[in-house]
């Protein structure tokens, strides 16, 4: 055992460096959002004034509301579609390569390509761009991620309990709601939370399918336009909130679905 403990020291150093690289930039950002002066040059005392300033910025509040509308709508639709797709794919007799590719594609297709394809598609249909087109677009990748999480749980699903339920006389419908659904629920919630996070943070596709005008600007679009004008303390505060919400959603998602990890 002593050699194993000795072998762990280099591992610890590696992990320390990698986690430092991953989290230091975020930590600096969070720290600066509480800096009185707001600038990275000097620390002039703890202050929450940049958060107060955010609360009074109607543009940012409007963008935040739009983001919430898009994320909630896209999450609801994609959770239903993704879960059904997962059950459909896992209960097929034979694996379908086409179906596998279709469900995998949204996760790997470059954002920029999907974004310009959707912009072209919506304009060809003469559809007015707005929050609804962002929602239609976000469901694409959201449902793929929900599907992959629910499928992972279905792989460990014990189908004998479904058979038991049917043998005891329950209908297919009752069996689904009383047996299958409760087992899948943690994965469905985890998938929904991941879809929500992805939707809240998605920038490129939203940017292309939002159309012109302020009415359909989401937070990432707002953040992008702010970043291009340079560093402001408000962005630090906004970034901290957005990161916090994402991290919280993912922690809950992990916690709800943790049995799957073991």
């Amino acid at each position: 055992m002593s050699s194993a403990a000795g072998a762990r020291l280099p591992g610890r150093i590696v992990l320390f460096c990698v986690f430092g690289f991953l989290y230091l930039p975020i930590a600096v950002l969070v720290l600066l959002s509480f800096n009185e002066a707001g600038l990275p040059t000097t620390w002039s005392g703890f202050s929450t004034k940049w958060y107060v300033a955010l609360a009074g910025n109607s543009e940012i509040l409007g963008a935040a509301w739009n983001t919430l509308v898009v994320a909630v709508a896209a999450t609801l639709i994609s959770t239903v579609l993704g879960t059904l797709l997962a059950i459909g794919m896992e209960t097929r007799r034979r694996k379908s390569t086409g179906l596998e590719a279709l469900a995998f594609a949204p996760m790997v297709i470059p954002d920029i390509v999907l974004a310009v394809a959707l912009l072209t598609f919506f304009s060809r249909l003469n559809l007015t761009l707005g929050l609804h087109t962002i929602i239609l677009s976000h469901v694409i990748f959201d449902l793929a991620f929900v599907c992959s999480i629910v499928r992972a749980r279905l792989k460990h699903f014990d189908y004998s309990i479904v058979e038991a339920s049917r043998d005891l006389g329950a209908s297919g419908w009752t069996t689904f709601w009383r047996v299958t659904f409760p087992v899948l629920l943690p994965a469905i919630i985890a998938g929904a939370l991941l879809a929500f996070t992805l939707s809240v943070d998605e920038f490129i596709i939203a940017f292309f399918t939002a159309g012109a005008g302020r009415s359909s600007i989401t937070l990432p679009i707002q953040i992008y336009s702010m970043i291009r004008f340079g560093i402001t303390p408000e962005i630090n505060a906004l970034a901290t909130i957005v990161m916090g919400v994402s991290a919280l959603a993912l922690l809950i998602s992990q916690w709800v679905n943790k049995e799957q990890m073991s």
Partner: peptide, 30 residues
Amino acid sequence: MSFQASRPNLLAAPAVAWLLVFMVLPCLLI
């Protein structure tokens, strides 16, 4: 298999339709 999904294709259909309309078709269009 007596799993309630006696019609797996039907369950997959809404998502498949969504992906065909909003992903495959736009990609073919460009």
